[in-house]
Design a protein around this nucleic acid. Sequence first.
DNA 1: ATGAAAGCGCTAACAC
DNA 2: GTGTTAGCGCTTTCAT
Lengths: 335, 335
Amino acid sequence: MKKVTIRDVANDAGVSVAAVSKVLRNAYGVSEELRSKVQNSIQHLKYRPSTLARGMRGKTHCIGVLLVEMHNPFLPKVVDAISQSLKHEGYKTFISVGESDTSIEQSIIDAMLDQHMDGLILIAPRLSGEHLRSIAIRKPTVVVGHHEPSSNDFDTVNCDDFSGAYMATEALIESGCQNVHMLSLPRFDDVVEVFSLREKGHLKAIEVLAVHQEPHIWRINERDSNFDVACAQIFEGARKPDGVFCWSDIHALQLLSVAHERKIKVPGDLSVVGFDNTSISALPMVGLSSVDQFATKIGNKAATLLMSRIFGRLTSEHLLVEPALVKRNSINIFE
Amino acid sequence: MKKVTIRDVANDAGVSVAAVSKVLRNAYGVSEELRSKVQNSIQHLKYRPSTLARGMRGKTHCIGVLLVEMHNPFLPKVVDAISQSLKHEGYKTFISVGESDTSIEQSIIDAMLDQHMDGLILIAPRLSGEHLRSIAIRKPTVVVGHHEPSSNDFDTVNCDDFSGAYMATEALIESGCQNVHMLSLPRFDDVVEVFSLREKGHLKAIEVLAVHQEPHIWRINERDSNFDVACAQIFEGARKPDGVFCWSDIHALQLLSVAHERKIKVPGDLSVVGFDNTSISALPMVGLSSVDQFATKIGNKAATLLMSRIFGRLTSEHLLVEPALVKRNSINIFE
DNA sequence: ATGAAAGCGCTAACAC
DNA sequence: GTGTTAGCGCTTTCAT
């Protein structure tokens, strides 16, 4: 059960290893006859080139995807789109999960570089722009879910978060809410831009469409074990909201749960809009209005950008995907 | 910006490359003094050994995880547990997604072997036992979500599906259902055992606790785009069920949706139990009873088994994790 | 168009 | 205890 190597193929086909290597890489300068002899031997011996040996000199044809975490169902959709796009280009995708922790993220990226992966796609990394830059100058890199249009070293693909937040808030105001709040995430040090864009869009909508309202932004970590307790505060303060725009569907779902338990009617007493349009929102017993980020489109664009970067592009691109609001039962709909 | 190699470290520390290599691997026969000199140089030069070069002779310290798909929220929990366990052992985890397709699964596994990953964990693979065996004889392998206790070549970790199905069905019968059905998956060729175990557990419960009932198993693919249409048939047949045990929470949620739209009262007209106890089930507006598989425990055990196999174990182990039923609003609870 | 040979950065025998 | 060196399986000049 020995491993069959390029040399075995060369012997079997009666040619040199260099010739085999050329066939493998579709390199210039091989006759049709030689090519077919080699390909015969490859099939016959069931030869598979070792990615390791290959990577020591050339390309590995592997792409590393760093995923911030796996629990938001929006993320798998992006990853699926990436894997599929890259597969068509002949690249293998390997995913590693960062657990929302910068030091874990860093060690994953190091491991991917150690593996000589040909390119990196970082999905909603917690690492700072500084860090990302230091990675990107060493290896073609595309970042998803991190707004940094000033970067010259890596590309970015994002939902237009400002616009998404604006339209969500607008819908709440138009549905008649007099007191619209936002349920956001706690800020963390560096990667602040993507957050602030959603918050900015929210605030802007209030400013433009309902100046008299006094905005309020609640900040709760959606994976916090006593999210509900923290969340309940929203209904115990002096100025209770009658409309809440939520950072994610996960937030929104938990908010709806709290409302459900307190017998707060949705819609009626409270309207809610989430973000990501995950499949759960569409369940009729949930009926959560939500902003769709078009995960598949985002993933496809990220893959395409990475390919063109690997093939030599040096200038940066920063893509924005326009989101769309899907209205459901969690807000009053007049039309 | 040249890559720093083991040779640079050796020069800097004034020792041989072999010495550095030994320090790297904690190998036998290095003096404390030499070790610290080398470690100084490593830090100072920011040296990182290349996994590729390393793997050509020795271990890569990388583990490949093949994941059938990413959309069932049960799966990320297993993967998280695996990554974390392996991290503590100094192994990196790389995930690839099989899209529920055997040929994609095969090419992913090939890629992982090409990468000289030190071991494989296959989560709910669609590949046949035959295929799995051919992989396992080449590389330490643990399979999750595939019952094959007769295998001598790979280990398995599973929920006790028979028992889980039995307790779910039992709960439906005890809650007063007169006509309990099961909503299962379409069978596919080879990997039939895990399915049949849940179905067997279901049928056994009816046989033991409610012989007079005539069982019925519906088979629908949960990702089918017109699941609801197929699902609606359940309520249009001659013998409508008043209790349904579902293959997964995903199935159950869609069933609840259909019921909701048809104004079928749950519980009352219909009781439902799912499988996996995903976080959505616990939402109060959903309140789905479900069988918890203890994903984290399954993941941890899989990681532990793989480690011991890599460290030389040759006999097979086949672990069963006992599930637990979580009762919620979707069934009548008397107590 | 084809082949010989020099590495890529490590590990593991083996020598000292 | 430490160093020398022959590979691991491939890619890539550079001859032919």
